[in-house]
């Protein structure tokens, strides 16, 4: 099964919509709760990154029998130094975004801690693609 969700940069009102839909779907499919939690953490953080940093983006979810593959592609400023972006506490979020409690430099480390496979590719000035795979049948990270 494949699903797509559009994400609008700056639209914090709807941030988390895709994560919420995917959570409901996995619950209906009776996926283990621990696995659902890991999927939700990864997807929400990646979704909020598009809202906080990019102009717009698309989330595509590919659900197979034993894995969920989440690909988030955005049009945005891109990440010049991915290694730096991955460091806990590093953030380029705006003051407004930080005031809401986002942008503490914890999002990407959260994804890394919960994903089975996690890949970021980025072209500065164009955008970023985040690819996350989680095995549905294993609770261990």
């Amino acid at each position: 099964m494949t699903f797509e969700y559009k994400v609008q940069g700056g639209d914090f009102t709807h941030a988390g919509y895709a994560s919420s839909q995917v959570k409901k779907m996995l619950k209906q499919l009776d996926v283990d709760n621990v696995v659902i939690k890991r999927v939700v953490v990864c997807l929400y953080e990646a979704e909020v990154n598009i809202v906080a940093h990019a102009w717009d983006g698309v989330i595509s979810i590919v659900l197979e029998t034993d894995t969920i593959f989440m690909k988030l592609t955005d049009n945005g400023p891109g990440i010049p130094n991915i290694e730096q972006a991955m460091q806990r506490g590093f953030s380029t979020a705006s003051h407004e975004v930080r005031e809401m409690g986002f942008g503490a430099g914890m999002g990407l480390p959260n994804i890394s801690a919960n994903a089975d496979k996690f890949l970021i590719t980025s072209e500065p000035g164009k955008g970023t693609t985040v690819e996350i795979t989680i095995n549905l049948n294993s609770t261990a990270v």
């Binding site: 953490v41 809401m100 409690g101 503490a104 480390p109 801690a113």
Partner: peptide, 18 residues
């Protein structure tokens, strides 16, 4: 008060103070 902190560390069934 940091949302990603809650995302990463809160447990289901918790009360969240913020």
């Amino acid at each position: 008060d940091l949302l990603s902190d809650v995302m990463g560390h809160a447990e289901s069934g918790d009360l969240w103070l913020t």
